[in-house]
Simulated scan of single mutants.
Amino acid sequence: MAINLHSENIIHIGEVPKLPFMKGRGRRLSCATLYRWINNGLRGVKLETVLIGGSRCTSVEACERFIGATQGGSPAPAACRTASQRTKAVDAAKRQLDAFGI
């Protein structure tokens, strides 16, 4: 899955070690480890990145997907719905209930 620049939280690769869930054994990850994950991957999974204005960037969601995929489980869940998406879903559910007479 590619990074969606419109809906994901883009961060510079140097900010990744500061993410709370990216700590290895209680320590911050080194830049060398991050670049190894980007170039070579870990357990067959590469950390997704994009090049923006000459700077290597990733997203918080891409980091979550990477951690989920390398832990042997399914990728991390997608980001929560926006307020407008929730409103549309509620309206659709109300229409269905009305159609059933509930």
Rank of each mutant, 00 (worst) to 15 (best):
A79F: 02
L34F: 01
A89K: 09
T58H: 08
M22Q: 14
R95K: 12
V16G: 03
M1S: 12
A83I: 15
V90K: 01
S7H: 10
L97P: 06
I52Q: 10
S74W: 03
T58F: 04
Q96I: 12
G68Y: 00
C57Q: 09
M22W: 11
A62S: 09
E64C: 13
K23F: 08
S7M: 10
D98T: 09
M22F: 09
T87D: 04
F100L: 11
P20E: 06
V50W: 01
G101I: 05
R27T: 08
S30W: 02
R43L: 13
S30L: 01
A76Q: 03
V16E: 01
R36P: 00
N40F: 01
E15L: 02
L97Y: 03
A2V: 15
M22T: 10
W37A: 02
G72Y: 04
A69E: 01
R95F: 10
I10M: 12
Q71R: 15
F21R: 11
Q85S: 13
E15P: 10
I3Q: 09
S74M: 07
A83Q: 03
F100Q: 12
I38K: 06
R43N: 13
I3G: 08
T33E: 15
R28W: 13
Q85A: 10
A2W: 02
D91K: 15
G68R: 00
G14S: 07
D91Q: 13
W37I: 02
V45N: 05
D98A: 12
A78N: 13
K46L: 10
G68I: 04
C63A: 08
K88W: 00
G53S: 00
R56C: 12
L19P: 05
T49S: 09
G26L: 12
M22P: 09
T82W: 00
I67S: 10
R25F: 11
D91A: 13
A62R: 01
F21M: 15
C57V: 07
D91P: 06
K18V: 08
A89L: 15
L19I: 07
V16W: 01
K18P: 12
L47D: 02
A2F: 04
S55M: 05
